[in-house]
Write a protein that binds this DNA or RNA. Structure first.
Length: 554
RNA sequence: GCGCUUGUAGCUCAGUGGAUAGAGCGCUACCCUGCGGAGGUAGAGGCCGUGGGUUCGAGUCCCGCCAAGCGCGCCA
């Protein structure tokens, strides 16, 4: 990657300067290279001299001059100029020849352009959303979906072996309440006068689930009035609900590699093994009739209950067993859990539990995203399955479109407290920036289709004919993609991707206005066809990393 | 009360300690005999919540204050 090459050049220049006695001897590990905001400052800039000023006891500008003098263009054809600017920047400008040669390089990489080898095949799991199977996905889940799926795609591009997982909470009290509600609705379908249980799920969708249950089983699940529901109500209900969730997921284009049943932890003995390990390592204590994890021995404020005095394990115990499975059975090198901010309190004790298992807690990363505040115009919409007022993800996707929903959610940093105005989203669906990016892709597709009639084969196009400033600007923009993938995979923050896609589309539209691709000049046409093909690839890749379509026509 | 997160343009939000703080939407004025106008050009609009501190340099780091969201269960 060119950025790393520049960094190496700066560091090598520092070492040469030190060998020559022009700089005092000290270790430098970071060249502090970034992309300047203004084009007149070059393609890359290092602010290292300012950082060295104190230790070197020299003026930053002097240091910059010394370093720059050691890294002048050496005929490698990559760097056109190295300039020094006050108060102590080293600005590096890439040569047009090298830039244009990258058009061919991108073309050769094809759909793999943008990939980097940061992960080296390490196994990483991304678990996200994992909403309890007690209702359809709501709009808020969309944020976790967009974040998790995009992150998984980015990590894949960064060379990790990625698995997307959905944990199905089918063992807790929530699905039990769900089943009780479902049984009430089911009985109502047979004319029985039964109330929705206290704390149940009054949403209308439960009637649909009950109808499906009736279709499948007829009256076979009815028990005498007042008797508890048979276990099939729970299991079939969860199954039906999962079907609904999978339908919602496919509407927004998210596919999981694995659906992990919480209940399986108890069937396969993983839960027992986990408790045995915790006991063996001395982190389990019994008191007040319950079994506790000695979290306070691991720096936590207090201990946490693993098994209630009733004998039933807590969600926390389940979750520890679940992570035992992830790390000690399935052997993921690292695990990323994406949780809503309402789970933030759970983070420290989960980390402590990982330590208690003897697993390095750094192998577990928990990303907390702030909850979405839903609005209809000025009016706040309260999301609550219990209250029955839910705005489903599915209905918003149907109104606004999956690509626009994804683009909107991905572009927000996980920490931002975002407002999602349903009215605004609907109104802006036609003016969404996503179409700006897709339009650029479709425009190129149009040009390529038209070119086929005249210039079927442009593989011999000479990229050195690309000398217009707009052409070079477009190439520069394309070259940022691998850098961005690397950054996103390191910080685990994919929200820059939509902004990059916008910038890339802008660079293309600007080129399109200033340079005509298909002209009487066949040689130039061929080289520009190469350029727009590369731009099309890059746009498609950026869109693809966000799980969005790259349409040939719109 | 304690903890986590946030406060940047009218709205929704970007902004890896660096050079003159940006985008989309909205608003104003322009640009179609041209490969797709879902496009382009120009403009208005900012004490970056607030008060201190660290630094050669702070929207960015630290502390106080104000405000908002979330969390502090033998719920999940």
């Amino acid at each position: 990657m060119i950025k790393h090459e520049i960094e190496e050049m700066v560091l090598a220049a520092v070492r040469r300067a030190q060998d020559a006695g022009a700089l005092p001897a000290f270790a430098v590990s970071d060249a502090v290279v970034d992309r300047p905001q203004r084009p007149e400052h070059g393609d890359y800039a290092s602010s290292l001299p300012m950082r060295l000023a104190r230790t070197a006891r020299m003026k930053p500008l002097e240091i910059a001059k010394v370093i720059a003098s050691q890294m002048g263009p050496e005929g490698d054809g990559v760097v056109a100029a190295v300039e020094v600017a006050p108060p102590g920047f080293i600005n590096v400008r890439l040569s047009p020849e090298w830039l244009t040669s990258q058009v061919d390089a991108i073309g050769e990489q094809g759909p793999a352009f943008g990939n980097v080898d940061l992960g080296r095949g390490r196994k990483v799991q991304v678990e996200f959303v994992s909403a309890n199977p007690v209702g359809p996905l709501h709009v808020g889940n969309g944020r976790g979906l967009a974040l998790g799926d995009t992150l998984a795609r980015v990590l894949g591009a960064a060379g990790y072996e990625v698995q997307r997982e959905y944990l199905v909470n089918d063992a807790g009290t929530q699905t039990a309440t769900f089943a009780a509600t479902l049984y009430a609705r089911y009985q109502q379908l047979f004319g029985r006068e039964v109330d929705i249980p206290e704390g149940g799920y009054p949403g209308e969708y439960m009637i649909d689930v009950a109808r499906e249950l009736k279709e499948r089983c007829g009256d076979g699940l009815l028990r005498a009035e007042g008797e508890p529901y048979p276990p099939e109500v729970h299991d079939l209900g969860v199954e039906i609900m999962l079907g609904v969730i999978k339908r919602d997921l496919s509407a927004i284009g998210v596919h999981y590699d694995d659906w992990f049943s919480e209940r399986s932890l108890y069937k396969t003995g993983t839960y027992d093994k986990t408790m045995a390990l915790l006991r063996e390592r001395g982190y389990v204590a019994e008191r007040e009739g319950a079994i506790w994890l000695s979290s306070s021995a691991l720096g936590e404020e207090k201990d946490n209950v693993l098994v209630r005095s009733t004998g039933a394990p807590t969600y926390f115990a389940s979750d520890i067993a679940y992570h035992y499975d992830k790390f000690l059975i399935r052997g993921f090198d690292s695990v990323i859990n994406i949780w809503g901010a309402d789970h933030q309190g759970h983070v420290p004790r989960m980390k402590a539990a990982i330590s208690a298992l003897g697993v390095d807690p750094d192998r577990l990363t928990i990303i907390i995203y702030q909850l979405v505040t839903l609005k209809r115009g000025e009016e706040l919409v309260k999301l609550s399955k219990r209250a029955g007022d839910i705005v489903t993800l599915r209905e918003v996707v149907a109104e606004v479109g999956a690509d626009a929903v994804r683009f909107n959610f991905v572009s927000r940093a996980a920490d931002s407290h975002m407002d999602f105005d349903i009215e605004l989203a609907k109104r802006q669906s036609a003016e969404n920036p996503v179409y700006y990016v897709q339009y650029a892709h479709a425009r190129i597709a149009g040009i390529l289709t038209q070119a086929q009639e005249r210039i079927a084969d442009f593989s011999a196009g000479d990229v050195s004919l690309l000398t217009h400033e707009a052409e070079l600007a477009l190439i520069r923009r394309m070259l940022r993609l691998p850098e961005l993938v690397e950054t996103m995979a390191t910080t685990l923050e994919p929200h820059q991707l939509p902004y990059y896609a916008m910038d890339l589309a802008t660079a293309f539209h600007d080129f399109y206005e200033k340079c005509r691709v298909l002209t009487d000049d066949e040689a130039l046409s061929k080289s520009r066809l190469k350029l727009v093909s590369a731009a099309k690839l890059t746009l498609a890749r950026a869109l693809g990393l966000m799980g969005m379509s790259a349409p040939e026509r719109m």
